[in-house]
Each structure stands twice: as structure tokens, then as C-alpha cells.
């Protein structure tokens, strides 16, 4: 082995040199932090450093599992992502199918183009717009409700509304972008199948049901499994930005909790443990999802 490495070093030394910065980058910014996970089992003292701080075993994890809000943040994390998956996932497929059958090509192109745009708007702006539109005093949504004779609702202050706001704005942000993959899969469907179906007297709905959906079902299964694999990976930014004291019970998730105990309370060991808990569950889910994908589809992510 050693000999082969030396031989390759001589032959491909430029590739080794090229890759060196990337290697160092991953060692410093990915693998050193992995070493820092030790903190989850230690009582961190700044002076003593990561290695020198004393071991505390599973104390942090016991604290997490017995925390009064543990079930709440776990429930919120899974709740938000399941809700989001159940709404966004089918809508993206539906949107792609409908676009595919749209005959007015100008309208098709225009709708497609504007549907991608929100994907590139920052979460800060999206959440800022939400707070403007949903404002109980002069927001345009409440203005509309008032004109229909309905009293104003303080949407962002109601825990019960938080997840819906998060999910629906997420649909606005991601619908067009997540439909792209289905649109390209639909474009690859053999048109002869459609012609055969037309000759057999199939309506468009029947063609969708019997030609299109079977054709893109491998893509659908694959994406569904992958989405299930990232069930615990709710993004931090948007939840954090929409969070306030009033909707806190519905909006506190593992990621925001990790941030709060770590960066705000500076409780490094505990925060690392909470983060590790989330990462491990994520990894288990992803591996399970990947194994399932392999069984169902014949191939997975790796």
C-alpha cells in the first residue's frame, strides 16, 4: 500500500497538491468540530480546553431527556417537518403535472419563471414580508379580512397558526424550485405512450393517472424517501426569524434550542449534547431512508 501511494504521489503529485487546501479545509472546519463533540460528555471550562475539561458521562443527555420542554421541542421539530412534507411534497408534483399539460407556452414559461423567483429571496426578507402582511393593525391580509367583515387576527402571535404560516410560506418559497425535478422527469416520458392512450380514448386526467404518474413514480419514491430521511433537519433560520415570545410554544425546535442554550446561555457542553442528539437521529433516519431507497429503487444516495 505504502509503495502504491508513493508511486501515485510521483505520478499524480499535482492532483495531491491541488486537493491539499480542500483536505485542510475539511480537517479544520469539519473534522476538528467532530472531535469537539466530546464536549457533549464533558463539563466545558474555557481555561482547560476541550480535552482538559472533566468528563461528566451522560449528564447532559439526562438533562435533555428530563427537560420540561423536551417533548415540546421534539414534537415541534417533527410536527413542522411532517406538516411541511405533507403539504409541499404533493403540491410540487401537482404543479409539475399541471404545467406539463399547459398548452399556452407563453403562460407556461412565465409562470415557471416567476415560480422559481421566491427560492432566491432571503429568509430574512420572506419573514419580514410575512410580518408586514400579517400585521394585526395594518397588514394587507387583515385589511382583506376586515373588508369581508371578519375581525383582525394577530397571526404571528398565535401558537396555533405558527406551523401553518411556516408551511404555507414555505410552499410559496419552494414550490417552483422543487417542481423542476418532476418537470424534467415528465419531459422524459415517451410521447408514444400518450399517443397510445389518446387513441384508446383516454382523457387527460386518465393520462396523468395511467401514463405520467407511473412514469415519474421512481422519482417520487426517491424524493419522498430522502425527505423522510431529513425529517429532523428543520432549517434553523426561518423558524428563528418567525419566532416570538407569543408563539414560542409552537415554534421552539431543537435547532433553536441548541442555539439558545449554546450561544445565548453559553452552556457549551449541554448545547453540544442537544445538537449531537439531533445529528444522530438525522443520520439514523437518513441511513434507514437510504437503505429503503435501495430496496425499492435499486439505488440510493450512496
Amino acid at each position: 500500500m505504502k509503495k502504491r501511494i508513493w508511486k501515485d504521489l510521483r505520478k499524480n503529485w499535482l492532483l495531491w497538491v491541488m486537493f491539499l487546501p480542500v483536505f485542510l479545509y475539511y480537517i479544520i472546519f469539519s473534522y476538528t468540530p467532530m472531535y469537539g463533540i466530546l464536549l457533549a460528555f464533558k463539563d466545558y471550562k474555557t481555561k482547560k480546553g476541550i480535552w482538559g475539561s472533566g468528563w461528566v458521562g451522560l449528564k447532559h443527555f439526562e438533562r435533555l431527556f428530563s427537560a420540561y420542554n423536551f417533548e415540546l421541542i421534539l414534537g415541534n421539530t417533527i410536527g413542522i417537518s411532517l406538516y411541511s412534507l405533507c403539504v409541499s411534497f404533493p403540491l410540487a408534483i401537482l404543479f409539475a403535472l399541471m404545467l406539463n399539460y399547459l398548452r399556452l407556452s407563453k403562460l407556461k414559461k412565465t409562470v415557471q419563471m416567476v415560480s422559481y423567483a421566491p427560492h432566491f429571496i432571503s429568509n430574512v426578507v420572506v419573514c419580514g414580508m410575512l410580518s408586514i402582511f400579517l400585521d394585526p393593525n395594518n397588514g394587507i391580509v387583515n385589511g382583506f379580512l376586515n373588508s369581508m367583515g371578519i375581525a383582525s387576527v394577530a397571526f404571528l402571535s398565535q401558537p396555533g397558526m405558527f406551523k401553518t404560516i411556516y408551511v404555507l410560506s414555505g410552499v410559496w418559497q419552494g414550490l417552483g424550485w422543487s417542481a423542476i425535478i418532476y418537470i424534467s422527469a415528465l419531459a422524459g416520458v415517451d410521447y408514444q405512450l400518450h399517443e397510445a392512450a389518446i387513441i384508446d380514448g383516454a382523457t387527460k386526467l386518465q393520462r396523468i393517472q395511467h401514463v405520467d404518474i407511473p412514469a415519474i413514480s421512481p422519482t417520487i419514491t426517491m424524493l419522498l424517501i430522502l425527505n423522510l430521511g431529513s425529517l429532523m433537519g428543520v432549517g434553523f433560520e426561518k423558524v428563528y426569524l418567525l419566532q416570538n415570545d407569543l408563539n414560542f410554544n409552537a415554534s421552539d425546535i431543537i435547532a433553536t434550542y441548541t442555539y439558545r442554550v449554546g450561544m445565548v446561555n453559553q452552556d457549551y457542553g449541554y448545547s453540544t449534547a442537544v445538537g449531537l442528539f439531533n445529528t444522530v437521529i438525522n443520520l439514523v433516519l437518513l441511513i434507514t431512508a437510504n437503505t429503503t431507497a435501495r430496496k425499492v429503487n435499486g439505488e440510493g444516495l450512496w
Binding site: 480542500v22 483536505f23 472546519f29 476538528t32 467532530m34 442555539y259
Partner: peptide, 22 residues
Amino acid sequence: FLKMCLFTMYFNGGLIPTYLVV
């Protein structure tokens, strides 16, 4: 090296360990 890079996509040190390195 491919595996070394791929691994970082699915597993990371998390907020605080990364913060401490930076």
C-alpha cells in the same frame, strides 16, 4: 477522499464545536 467529503454532508460537529474552532 470522496468518502471523506461525503461524510461531512451527513455528519457534522454542530453549532458549538464549530463555533469554538472558528
